[in-house]
C-alpha cells in the first residue's frame, strides 16, 4: 500500500484520469492542478463527463486509470480522512424530505463526528438564512431553499474543498444571486472550489481558472484573466452545438 505524504488540505492534483463505461470514455486523460483557495469552473455540453469527474474526485466512483489526489489523499482509496476535507453540492440536495433542516444537519453532523452537531447546525442555518425555517419539513421547501440547505449541509463540517455539480440548475434569478453570494463568501475564505456549470457568465465571473470539457477531455484549461470572455463564450457554444471542438483550439 502506498503511504500518503503529509496531506495538504486544499490541493487537487489530477493526472491522466480516465473512466470508461464499456466503449464510452466518460473521462479521457484529464490532468490539472488546483491550488489552495482557487476556484475552477468547468464548462461543457451534456454528457461531457463533468459529473463523472466530480464523482471520481469525491471518491464516489473509481477511475479506470490515472491518479487523483484531493487534500493530499489518493481518491481511489476513498479514505474517510479525505471525505472530512470535502463538501459536495450536486443536482440532488442529499437531504431527507420528511426531516426538518435541523434534524437533517444534526444527522449529518453526527455522521461527520462533529462535537456539537446542534450548535454547528444552527450556525450554518443562520449563514444560509434558513434559521427561521429550521423546524419545517424539508418537503415543503422551494428549489432555491433546498439548494441553500444543501450548501449548509456541504459546509457543516467546514471543508477546505468544495465540489459543486451544476448548482444553478433550476434556480430563479434571486436564488441564483443568493447562491453566488454564498460561493463568493466561501471563495473569500480561501476555500478551494471546483464547479461545473452551464451558466457561462456566472461561472466566469466567480472563477480563477476555467476549463472546457468535451467528450471526456479537457479541451481548454486557462487562468480566467488570460482569456477573452466573449471568445470563450463562442468556443463554449460551439462545443455545446457540435459536442466537439471545431474552432482550432489545441486540446489541453
Amino acid at each position: 500500500m502506498v503511504e500518503n505524504p503529509k496531506p495538504d488540505p486544499s490541493v487537487i492534483e489530477v493526472r491522466q484520469l480516465r473512466k470508461e463505461f464499456g466503449v464510452l470514455k466518460a473521462v479521457d486523460g484529464v490532468s490539472f492542478d488546483l491550488k489552495r483557495g482557487e476556484f475552477l469552473s468547468i464548462f461543457g455540453p451534456n454528457g461531457a463527463g463533468k459529473t463523472t469527474l466530480i464523482k471520481i474526485l469525491t471518491g464516489l466512483t473509481r477511475p479506470s486509470s490515472g491518479t487523483a489526489r484531493v487534500a493530499g489523499y489518493e481518491v481511489e482509496e476513498g479514505i474517510p480522512e479525505m471525505r472530512r476535507e470535502i463538501g459536495v453540492i450536486s443536482h440532488s440536495p442529499a437531504l431527507y424530505a420528511d426531516l426538518t433542516p435541523m434534524e437533517n444537519l444534526i444527522f449529518f453532523g453526527k455522521m461527520y463526528g462533529l462535537e456539537h452537531p446542534q450548535e454547528s447546525a444552527l450556525a450554518v442555518l443562520e449563514d444560509v438564512g434558513l434559521a427561521p425555517r429550521r423546524h419545517d419539513r424539508v418537503r415543503t421547501f422551494s428549489r432555491g431553499m433546498l439548494q441553500r440547505l444543501s450548501i449548509a449541509r456541504a459546509i457543516l463540517h467546514d471543508p477546505s474543498i468544495l465540489f459543486l455539480d451544476e448548482p444553478f440548475t433550476g434556480l430563479d434569478i434571486h436564488a441564483s444571486n443568493v447562491l453566488k453570494e454564498h460561493l463568493q463568501t466561501l471563495h473569500n475564505k480561501k476555500r478551494t472550489i471546483l464547479m461545473t456549470t452551464h451558466d457561462v457568465s456566472c461561472g466566469l465571473e466567480m472563477c480563477d481558472k476555467v476549463a472546457l470539457q468535451v467528450m471526456g477531455r479537457f479541451a481548454f484549461f486557462e487562468d480566467v484573466k488570460d482569456i477573452d470572455k466573449e471568445n470563450f463564450e463562442a468556443l463554449y457554444f460551439d462545443a455545446v452545438r457540435n459536442n466537439q471542438f471545431t474552432m482550432g483550439i489545441r486540446p489541453h
Partner: peptide, 18 residues
C-alpha cells in the same frame, strides 16, 4: 428507496463513515 430519494445515499457515502 428512502435513501435514494433526493440523493441521500450519496450524502451518506460522502460522510467519513465506514
Amino acid at each position: 428507496v428512502l435513501e435514494k430519494e433526493n440523493g441521500c445515499l450519496m450524502g451518506l457515502m460522502l460522510a467519513p463513515a465506514d
